[in-house]
Amino acid sequence: MLAPKQTKFRKQMRGRMTGKESRGVKLHQGEYGLQALEPAWVTSRQLEAGRKAMARSVKRGGKIWIMVFPDKPVTKKPAEVRMGSGKGNPEFWVSVVKPGRIIFEMTGVPRDLAIESLRLASHKLPIRCRIIEKGDHVKG
């Protein structure tokens, strides 16, 4: 699963996910992509599940890119612990995804197969997504 090798600080503040994404909204490498339509924290497990779903569907050939990286640690307090005594322990890594962000890209496979595998990957994510193709976007 994706995770940073090293971080400067162990814990982060939660932050806000207002507005739409301004970068990473156009296809960069692939011919087909999966674009987020809602804001969410996408965990490294969900990204890995999506990648696996695509890989299983494609079997051989093609190329897959994961365009986001889960670099935000999320903390949790253990079960049945009273409030207070500081922030909990880091539990997993997430990537902050805003509407418009492209999460997966794909190339080198027939259109039908690419769309089907991206559809399968979208079901592994906690948000509504849409599939985009090269040429859909202006200057994309």
């Binding site: 699963m1 995770a3 090293q6 009273r82 880091p90 997993f92 890594w93």
Partner: peptide
């Protein structure tokens, strides 16, 4: 030493289990 580097997989850091044990005691 947990501060220097975050671990690679799943759980970013196991540390500070002692704290939670104390909390339970409260």
């Amino acid at each position: 030493e947990g501060e220097a580097a975050a671990p690679a997989e799943g759980k970013p850091e196991a540390g500070k289990k002692e704290e939670s044990a104390k909390d339970k005691g409260k």
